[in-house]
């Protein structure tokens, strides 16, 4: 990895060869991917998983690098409000908006999905999200919260992200989620976008949005970088479409 802000990366001795490493199938040049570095969460796995998926990965919040990359990944863990504040501090809202205006791919992960919606509500306090999709991020209504572990997903026809892993489980860890259908909300509002959001659902207590694919903008509530081989395949699907 070329970590623009990876000064805290410890030096390591040579790693043993990986018997189980998946082959990297990239005949041509590797697409460039920036993982947005804005202080939210563990990025090591995301960087390595994307490299394994065939991308040339940089961890940075440099606007130039973000704009130039073939793909941008927006990770995020923790509270909606805290993540939004951290994102705004590096002008992540503008970086994302500019890429999307140019039709350039962006992938949000976990809270990186949540902040793409209209708003988040935590302990009765609402926080504006980026508003790319209509919907509120609310506390999950289930006997056991957080939803922590491997759950199956309900994938719609036409999904590119989930090709080959439609029937696999993915690793979720979250207490909040979008429990309304953004596509239905757009339709109800009389909006008919050229490409309506394609929604994948999962269930914990009640159905919630597990993933959205919408032109250049995709997002997953689960952690593909923590979802073993299924997650690796999903990331490869995304990288190969860049």
């Amino acid at each position: 990895m070329t970590a623009a802000t990876g000064a805290n990366e410890p030096a390591r001795a040579t790693q043993p060869a990986r018997a189980t490493e998946l082959p990297v199938e990239t005949p041509g040049p590797r697409p460039s991917v920036v993982v947005l570095d804005y202080g939210s969460g563990n990025t090591h796995s995301a960087v390595r998983a994307l490299e394994r998926a065939g991308a040339d990965v940089t961890l940075t919040s440099s606007p130039r690098a973000v704009a130039a990359a073939d793909g941008l990944v927006v990770p995020g863990v923790g509270a909606f409000r805290a993540v939004m504040e951290q994102l705004l501090a590096v002008r992540g809202d503008q970086l994302i908006e500019r890429r999307l205006a140019g039709g350039r791919p962006v992938l949000g992960i976990c809270v990186g999905l949540q902040i793409l919606f209209t708003e988040g509500v935590e302990h009765g306090e609402r926080t504006d999200g980026l508003g790319q999709w209509p919907g509120s991020v609310d506390r999950l209504d289930a006997p056991i919260v957080p939803h922590m572990g491997w759950s199956p997903v309900r994938v719609p026809e036409g999904s590119v992200l989930f090709e080959g892993v439609e029937h696999e489980r993915f690793y979720f860890v979250h207490s909040y989620g979008v429990q309304t259908d953004p596509a239905a909300a757009l339709a109800a509002a009389g909006e008919t976008p050229l490409s309506p959001p394609l929604v994948t659902w999962a269930e914990h207590g009640s159905p919630f949005v597990a993933a959205v694919e919408n032109g250049p903008l995709s997002a997953t509530q689960f952690h593909p970088e923590k979802s073993g081989d299924a997650g690796a395949r999903l990331l490869r699907n995304w990288v190969q479409a860049l």
């Binding site: 410890p10 090591h44 796995s45 390595r48 952690h223 690796a232």
Partner: peptide, 15 residues
Amino acid sequence: TLETVTAAAEQVFVP
């Protein structure tokens, strides 16, 4: 141990 954690995070793709 911190270095071990980093090495593991880069090679193990479960939590």
